[in-house]
Simulated assay, not measured.
Amino acid sequence: MFRSRSKDEQAATAKVTADQPQQPRDPQAPKGRPTPKRSEAQAHRRTRAHTPANRKEASKAQREARRVDMAKQREAMASGDERYLPVRDKGPVRRFARDYVDSRWCVAEFFLPMAVIILVLTMIRVPQIQNVALLLWLVIIVLIVLDSLGIWLRMGKQLNERFPNESHKGVKAYAVMRTLQMRRLRLPKPQVKRGERP
């Protein structure tokens, strides 16, 4: 009564079905098998997903994923794509801070070229030239401090007007640090021209 079918019967059935062309199943017709439980279907999906066999493969897959993420971030830094920027550069407030700095001339961005010139002047063994170099150091540092203070105050006012309900924590420091970089070396790349107000 509860015997399984004999092997001959199973082979004959398989031969008959192999000879007949497969017809598309009617969606209303029964499937011929029970619907699997959700837990069974999820377990089946997990086993089908490619999981690394050992730690070496897992670390290799992790490195590859990290490499892809870093490539996306580099591309976003060049194009300004908000989706892939690092967390410190994301959001409309940070974008405004970048545009605010990039739209104007800043004294601090000329610090590196001036530092090289002053360094060369200090190497010359003429006391008058060395005194001029020291005076230039003092002047450039005072100008950078005054310019940074002006940017800090003016941008704080602009942030309060434009983004009253958003957090401004660290934004002014972020903008001032951006002024210390030469324009062509800034990341994310400037999206506005000089004189073009954000």
Rank of each mutant, 00 (worst) to 15 (best):
P30V: 02
L180Q: 02
Q42A: 14
H50Q: 13
E57Y: 10
R38L: 11
G195P: 07
T51A: 15
Q191V: 10
M77I: 10
A175P: 01
P52L: 01
R194I: 08
K189I: 10
A11L: 06
M182Q: 10
E75A: 06
P30F: 09
A41G: 11
D19N: 08
P113Y: 00
L112S: 11
Q130R: 04
A61H: 08
V192F: 05
E109T: 00
T47V: 11
V176G: 00
N165V: 12
L112G: 08
F110C: 09
R183P: 00
A71R: 12
K37S: 15
Q128A: 11
V126F: 02
A14E: 05
K37L: 12
Q181R: 09
S39C: 12
P30A: 04
D8E: 14
A173Y: 07
S4W: 15
R194G: 07
G156F: 02
P24C: 12
L185D: 07
E161N: 15
L185G: 03
A18D: 03
P27G: 06
E64D: 13
D81V: 05
R33A: 14
R5P: 15
R184S: 03
P36F: 01
Y100W: 11
S39W: 08
I117Y: 00
G170S: 02
L85C: 01
Q42V: 08
K56N: 08
P24T: 10
V145Y: 15
A71K: 12
V132N: 02
R25K: 11
K172S: 06
D69W: 11
A53V: 04
R186Y: 14
V116W: 01
V120G: 05
L187E: 03
T17G: 14
R183D: 00
R88A: 05
V116I: 06
H168T: 03
L138A: 13
H44R: 14
E196G: 12
A133K: 01
K157N: 13
P34A: 11
P164K: 04
A133Q: 00
T122E: 04
K193Y: 13
P30N: 03
M123E: 12
C106M: 11
P190S: 02
K37A: 10
L121R: 00
A115V: 11
A175Y: 01
S148D: 06
P113Q: 00
V101I: 07
L185S: 05
I129D: 00
E82P: 03
F96L: 06
T179G: 02
